[in-house]
Amino acid sequence: MAQRPQLQKVTAALGITGILAVGLMGCGGGGTSPAASSTPEPASPSASASSSSRASPAPSATASSAPAAADGKLTAPGTKLKAGETAVTHSNTGKDAADPKYVEAVFTSALTSVVAGTEADLAKFKDAAKYAGQTPYYVSVTHRMDSISKAAVSISEPKVTAQLKDGSDAQSLIVFGAFDQCKSTRFATTGTGDSLSLVAGSSMVSCQVFLAPTGDEVKSVEYEDSRFNYAKYGDNPYLKNPISWTK
Rank of each mutant, 00 (worst) to 15 (best):
A162G: 02
V175N: 08
V175Y: 01
L173Y: 05
S156E: 07
K126V: 07
A162D: 09
V160G: 00
T135F: 00
A128P: 12
V160Q: 07
T135N: 08
F125S: 06
C182L: 11
G177P: 11
Q163Y: 00
E119G: 07
G177C: 07
A129K: 03
D146P: 15
D166I: 09
C182F: 03
P136K: 02
D180R: 08
F125T: 04
G133V: 06
C182V: 00
A128S: 13
A151K: 15
A178L: 13
K165M: 03
H143V: 03
A178R: 06
Y137D: 02
P158N: 00
A151Y: 00
H143I: 07
Q181E: 12
P158W: 04
F179Q: 01
D146C: 04
D121W: 02
F179E: 03
Q134W: 11
Q163H: 15
F125R: 06
Q171V: 11
K124A: 07
F176Y: 10
E119T: 12
H143K: 05
I174F: 12
Y138K: 00
F179N: 07
Y131E: 08
I155Q: 05
Q163L: 13
Y137Q: 11
A120T: 03
A151D: 09
T161M: 11
G133W: 01
A152H: 12
V141C: 13
D180S: 13
I155H: 09
S140D: 06
I148K: 03
F125Y: 09
D121H: 04
T135R: 13
G133E: 13
Y131W: 15
F125H: 05
K130D: 14
Y131Q: 06
Q163C: 10
R144K: 10
K150V: 10
S172W: 01
A120E: 09
R144T: 06
A152I: 02
V175F: 01
F179S: 03
V153L: 04
C182P: 15
V160E: 01
L173R: 09
S149K: 10
I148E: 13
I155C: 01
Q163F: 04
K130T: 09
A152M: 11
A178T: 15
Q181N: 12
D121N: 11
G133H: 09
K130L: 12
L173D: 01
I155S: 10
K130C: 10
I174Y: 02
Y138W: 11
P158R: 05
V175M: 07
K159F: 08
S147C: 13
D166S: 13
A162N: 15
T161L: 14
A120D: 06
D180G: 13
